[in-house]
Structure formats: structure tokens, C-alpha cells
Design a binder for these strands. Structure first.
Lengths: 239, 239
DNA sequence: ACAAAAGTGTTGAGAGTACACCCATGC
DNA sequence: GCATGGGTGTACTCTCAACACTTTTGT
């Protein structure tokens, strides 16, 4: 008894462009995708201002009349051009001493975008934007390494008991592609027959009718059923 | 594909005491306890200012040099006198049109305090403070009903796969008391033998050596083991 | 001795896990 | 016809869920 849990509690600021004494709120979006058989995140490198030449999670200040989620969607669209993807609020980082300048609260989100060729684009061409594999990240600005770590933990966790894995794939996919996606994110191999039995038994997929041809026997294509109830109660530990 | 999940996204402001044009950040704490065999939450009723005579979740503005979690702890201590309890960040509500006045972002937390006689106290004696059973709540200010609903959902959810249930009880408790606590929060009856086997099998309890005497046979007292690994992986749904 | 609450085992069903071979196509 | 990846079933183990009686104390 009398211990406390509940995760992280640190924050850092990025831009520091406002008036001193007035609180700022930024929205930072950790964007995940699958590329080259690796889980990757989108990072930006500022070419000007403070924290120059350090990689950071994309984001920015919320606008006066903008909902938090809308600010996250705006950031996402600016960097990837994508609008209709999985987006979830992650955690709010608010440590006062994250930056010597003005205090900024960072509301973080995480997004999962399909693998099929998303070309990142800088919203300012003095900036760099690129995908980074999560197993070889650069040094990150402020507390962004904490945010990214927390996002990754949440992604892996949710992958196991929600249908978030489908977000990593294009609309139609083969079961082997799906299995590979799971294996990459979870970092472990899965048994083909058990995987198929379980995923088909969950009743969240339907055959699209098409086939993907390639080297060997053509593979049946599936799509995720929008009407599926995707978040199912996991086994209880207590009690 | 191409749908979005991720919960709530609304916000309201409570006090509105700052300068116009400058963003405010409040921390609101949903405090749960067990009283009279019911799950209850602490609410305050402001006797002055806007939203007068409407019940609200306790909270307040963060101070200039204060971490979010510290602001939540300060609120908690002000209302209950308790310091060392379970506290976890819940969600950040930031809708711009939550209040006609100045815009305020609300970072919400939830706390779980032990049943043993916590007497709430107003930090300003023009305010009222009291416990409300969650099955008979009053009308709530702003979007506080949403926040409370979300907190309750998270509490029930976490109860099933973490050791949060112990936070509702005093340091020493009998297995029957523990089972009753679970039954109240989950809203369902549990089998005594299965409950005991599972909870003892999890290895998170140790006998304190004492007994509680009463009507019938004395009951062995247990305590939660601080060193126990409490959050265990639940069964995967996918895949 | 009786009322009241504590404590204790077994069995059947369902889910998870491990494991190896045949099938359809392109070249 | 052979190389390549797609697709399929079964046996064992473990966990969950249902279910009723004995034990210890106070009065």
C-alpha cells in the first residue's frame, strides 16, 4: 500500500516563441509506420531556431480555436498528407523545467499509418523530415525520447488486444503480410497455423475476393471489417 | 480501415480567472473510494463565481512552476488530507468551446483512496465537499460528467488486470473484504473459492499474521506485497 | 448447541500451444 | 518439374468456471 504508479511525468518544450509568463500548449504526434520490414517513426529536424539540427517529434502549438485532436490531425496531414488514420491521445507531459524559456505543456498523440509509400514532406523546406527505424534512432530534442518510448510501449500493448495492427497495412492484405506486421512490431515469431486460426476466428476479417499473385501460389486478400467489434475483453488477472 | 478510434475529445473550463487571450491549464482529479458498500467519488460545490451551486470534480489551475502531477497531488491533499495514494493521469480535455470565457485545457487525473474514514474538507469554507455514490450523481458542471465517466471506465478496466483494487482497502484486510470491494466496483458477484485461489495464486498478498474477529470465525488478515509485480500480461486477443 | 462467517478441492469445458505436410502457381 | 510461398488439422496442456461442505469462533 501507499506507493504510487501511473507512468511518466516529464515534459519539454520545443519552440518557445510566445510571450514570457504565458503558458504554451503544443501537440506532438508520434507517427508509426512499417517500412523495409521495420517499425519506423517520423521525425523532423529543425534547421533554424533553438534546438537546431536536433531531431524531434513533429508537432506544434495549438491554435486559439482549435481542438487538441484537430491540432494533431493538422500536424499529421502537414507531414504525411494523410488524413484518415488511427490517432489516439497518449499522455500529457508538463514538467515545468523542461526548457529554460517559457513553460509549455505537451499533449502527445500517436498515429499509425499504413505502410504503402507514405512520403514525408516538410511543411517548411528549411526543415528535414524522414522516417527512422525504432531500433536506430538519432538523439532527440528535449524529452522526446521519453515520449517516443511511451508511445512505442502503448503501441505494442494495444496491438495485443485491439485491432490496431490492421492500421499498419493497406486496405487489402494477405494473411502472411498481416502476420509479418505483427511479428515486426512484437519482435517475435508467430506460428502460422495458430495465427490464422486465431485471426480468422476473431471474425474481424473478410475476404475481399481478390488474390495477390507473386512467386508461389496466389494469396487470398482480406480486408478489415469496419463493423467488427474489435476491442474484446482480455482475461482478467484480478480476479 | 480508415476509421479513427481513441476516445473522448471534449473539454470545459471551470474558473476562468486569468487574462483573456492567454491559455489556462487546470488539473482535475477524480477521487474514488469505497463507502457504505458503494463506489463513491468526491465532488465540490462552488458557492461563488460562475457555475455557482453546481457540483464539479475538484481541481484547479496549475501554478507557474509546478509539475502536473504535483498539482494533482496538491488538489488531492487539499480535499482529503491524503498524500500517499494511487494517482494516475487520465486524459487531457481541450475542446475550445467548452466555456464562453477564456480557453482552458483540463488535464485529468484519477485517484483511488482507501475506504477507512476519509473526511473530505473544503479548502475554502464557502464551498461544499462531499462523497457521491456513482449510481446517484448530481448534475455536473461543464464536461465533468464525461471526465467522470471516462475515469470510471478506466478504473473498472484497470481493476481487472492490475493491482489497483488493493488501493481501495486499508493496509490490512481480509480476503472477504477484498472480494467485496471487487464485487462492488465490478458490479457482479464472484465465486469465493475461485476468487481466493486466483488472488492467492497471483502471489501479491502476504498474511500479516493478525486476525480480524467478529461475528463468526476470525478471518486472517493480509497485506499487499510492495515487491509484487502487479501488472501482468493479459491474454492476447490479436493474435 | 447454534448462529455466523471463514476456509477448503474437484471436475468438465474451452483456449492456447506445438508441430509437418499438401496445394497452387510461375518459370 | 521444381522452386516458391499459401494453406490446412490434431493432440496435449493449462486455465477458467461451476459447485457444497467443514471449521472456528462468540453467544
Amino acid at each position: 500500500m501507499n506507493y504510487t504508479k501511473g507512468g511518466l511525468d516529464t515534459t519539454r518544450q520545443r519552440t518557445g516563441s510566445g510571450k514570457a509568463g504565458c503558458l504554451g500548449v503544443t501537440v506532438d504526434v508520434v507517427i508509426f509506420t512499417l517500412r523495409d520490414a521495420k517499425l519506423q517513426v517520423l521525425l523532423v529536424c529543425r534547421r533554424r531556431g533553438p534546438e537546431m539540427d536536433t531531431w524531434a517529434i513533429p508537432g506544434g502549438e495549438i491554435e486559439a480555436d482549435e481542438a487538441l485532436r484537430d491540432a494533431a490531425l493538422r500536424t499529421l496531414e502537414a507531414q504525411t498528407g494523410l488524413a484518415d488514420v488511427y490517432l489516439e491521445q497518449l499522455y500529457t507531459f508538463g514538467d515545468p523545467d523542461r526548457d529554460p524559456g517559457r513553460r509549455v505543456i505537451a499533449v502527445s498523440y500517436f498515429a499509425v499509418v499504413p505502410a504503402s509509400g507514405v512520403v514525408p514532406r516538410a511543411d517548411d523546406d528549411r526543415d528535414h523530415v524522414r522516417w527512422w527505424p525504432i531500433d536506430s534512432l538519432p538523439a532527440l530534442a528535449f524529452d522526446h525520447a521519453d515520449i517516443l518510448h511511451y508511445a512505442l510501449q502503448r503501441l505494442r500493448y494495444k496491438l495485443e488486444y485491439t485491432a490496431i495492427g490492421f492500421e499498419l497495412l493497406p486496405e487489402e492484405f494477405t494473411l502472411t503480410e498481416l502476420q509479418t506486421a505483427y511479428e515486426i512490431v512484437l519482435g517475435e515469431e508467430l506460428d502460422k497455423r495458430n495465427f490464422r486460426r486465431k485471426i480468422l476466428g476473431a471474425g474481424v476479417l473478410e475476404p475481399s475476393g481478390g488474390f495477390r499473385t507473386g512467386e508461389g501460389r496466389p494469396a487470398r486478400l482480406y480486408r478489415y471489417r469496419d463493423d467488427a467489434v474489435a476491442e474484446v475483453k482480455a482475461r482478467r488477472l484480478f480476479p
